[in-house]
């Protein structure tokens, strides 16, 4: 089973994300900020990281930079999930090594679409209209 690390300082967002990701077949680990996330990654790298931007202690952008410099840190697919919805933030995130970007609010369809985009899950079965 693939693992996904959810990094967000809001317990509500973590709970929603966990439910969606578990439905998509992931085993979920949670962190409240970048520092906690980094610690977890030092022990074991997840397949995917759903990453908030603004968090206390260490923000998502800072975390991403450090993750990508870790040994093996280039492997996890990182999908930002944030209210920072402008093109400048998105471009910065992509330049720092993010694989995809979700603008909050989000739902299961968006998470599934983005995870499919980066190859974390297979295409959902074809649907008729």
């Amino acid at each position: 089973m693939k693992t996904c690390l959810v990094v967000d300082d809001s317990s509500v967002v973590r709970k929603i994300a966990r439910r969606i990701l578990e439905e998509l077949g992931f085993s979920v680990v949670e962190a409240e900020d970048g520092e906690q996330a980094l610690e977890l990654c030092t022990k074991s790298l997840p397949d995917a990281i759903l990453l908030d931007w603004n968090m206390p202690v260490m923000d998502g952008y800072d975390f991403l930079g450090r993750l990508r410099r870790m040994p093996g840190g280039e492997t996890p697919k990182v999908v930002f999930c944030t209210t920072e919805n402008d093109i400048d933030h998105i471009s910065r995130a992509l330049n720092a090594g993010a694989n995809e970007y979700i603008m909050k609010p989000f739902d299961k369809e968006i998470v599934a679409a983005k995870f499919q985009e980066v190859g974390l899950i297979q295409a959902l079965s074809a649907e008729s209209a």
Binding site: E100, M103, I110, K114
Partner: peptide, 11 residues
């Protein structure tokens, strides 16, 4: 724009 559109193409 978040359903099916890769973020690189959005940018």
């Amino acid at each position: 724009v978040q359903r099916g559109l890769p973020i690189q193409l959005l940018v």
